[in-house]
Design a binder for these strands. Structure first.
Lengths: 261, 261
DNA sequence: GCAAGCCGTTTCATTTATTGAAATACGAGT
DNA sequence: ACTCGTATTTCAATAAATGAAACGGCTTGC
């Protein structure tokens, strides 16, 4: 190869591309796994090579063959996930508070963390009600048009310019695309203590979110309550749910070692 | 290298060994991550090599650096886990039943699947009570001395000889090490429909478990209720909890497409 | 019942990326 | 400023990855 970073293993990365292909497939088409030929198609690798990678991943347990001999994600994934959560204070302490908050409000509660210029959804507690949002854990969304994102952004002026430079792409009719308006709203959110998302990321979904502070008073995560617009009139968000997320977020922040000024 | 399977990528496997080292460390010592030198120590790789692997895993998102620059598991792990659960009917279907069962009994409910000659713990719903078992999700246990294992084994005579050949190592004073007794108990379990674990895997923990049947009438998974011996006298297990796990297991089996004879 | 075709698997000479010793850069502690 | 312990980069030697081709098994069609 030519330019690539020399401190990266080509072979290992290609192998992980195979893993990704299988993972992506699971998400999209669910049900059945991928055959060797599918992996060859998706990745463009030579079939011997793809074969070897599949064998390797299977041996390690990241992949396994399903009943029909197709490859799908393996048990090692579960093992790694639980090792991850064991070492992840934030998720640990937040989870029980999220359960309580969801129970109290009967709505879906999300925990998101800052990852680059996006929010990464790290945990969710579902609403008991039949109609509820379906954002994927393990997925990502923009900072400027989600409750979680704006809650984080309101405390992280350092990110604001980068976000605006990249551009505010509208995702729904309500997405804020005017930088001035975004800035104004973030200031409002800073004062009030929680952020609103009025169908800016997905139509029919509204959301309130509050930032989480760690022991160094930094914000890299937020908590939100989210639900169908029909159950979420703006005044319920502002008067009822907003204060509730905020209080819960404060509790969690305290557990994380944040000391109120 | 000399003998190794030629259909396995050495490089990729070595890279995954580094991932494992970081993962293992997280479990054992929690808190902080691993430095390059630690990885070098643990794996014995040359530092340039280990460095390249760490870079590779970090770039892919399986690892990330924590605040102090040490490596820990990254967000890709969460992404993969949720792709895994999306494509995993069993866990999906079982989970809500597990929630209900845990709520009703106020005890911890486990879901385990057969993996080789062990049970792999795939999901858990914790008891609300303060004293509760702590078996790790993503971990493994023996078939012959756990409720889950015996529930599976009672329906899988094909595995029995292999288990006995390997040997019944005692893990507690109560572990059954006599093959005859084990066989007798499995038959009893087959008749009654659920298996008991009377502190055979861990002292102070008792458990009842029932097998889960899939659409092809095979058993590769089981459901259990488990708790401290103090709250779990044998007659509660037999008269109350046992029938409850069994009924729940039957519901789940039905959802999985199992048709009762 | 035979042939053709498709896919997974193995082989092996060629090519390429990996390797590791050593040089270098960095940073904390003194 | 110097030292020590790490992290990072360099580069020639080398071991491992690659891919074309051959093989084998299984299904499909005639």
């Amino acid at each position: 190869m030519s330019g690539g970073n020399p401190a990266i293993s080509q072979t290992a990365i290609r192998c992980l591309e195979v893993l990704q292909a299988v993972s992506d497939h699971g998400r999209a088409n669910s049900r059945k796994g991928l055959a060797l030929k599918d992996v060859v198609e998706k990745t463009g690798f030579n079939s011997s090579t793809a074969y070897r990678y599949l064998q390797t991943l299977e041996q390690y347990g990241l992949l396994q063959k399903d009943a029909s001999g197709l490859y799908k994600l393996g048990l090692k994934v579960v093992e790694l996930y639980h090792a991850f959560t064991d070492g992840n204070d934030l998720r640990q302490v937040a989870y029980e508070h999220m359960l309580a908050l969801s129970k109290e409000t009967e709505e879906t509660v999300y925990l998101g963390i800052l990852d680059g210029l996006e929010v990464f959804y790290i945990e969710r507690v579902d609403s008991p009600l039949p109609i509820r949002p379906h954002t994927q854990i393990g997925g990502r969304n923009k900072l400027y048009c989600t409750g979680l994102g704006k809650a984080i952004l309101s405390q992280r002026p350092d990110l604001l310019n980068r976000i605006i430079d990249v551009g505010l792409e509208p995702l729904t009719a309500n997405t804020i695309t005017d930088p001035e308006r975004l800035i104004a709203q973030l200031q409002e959110c800073q004062v009030r203590g929680f952020a609103l998302d009025d169908m800016e990321n997905e139509s029919e979904v509204r959301c309130v979110a509050a930032p989480l502070f760690n022991e160094r008073r930094q914000v890299t995560a937020a908590l939100s309550i989210s639900g169908p617009a029909s159950r979420m009139p703006i005044d319920r968000l502002v008067d009822d749910l907003g204060p509730k997320v905020q209080v819960t977020a404060q509790h969690i922040s305290k557990m994380l070692g944040y000391i109120d000024a």
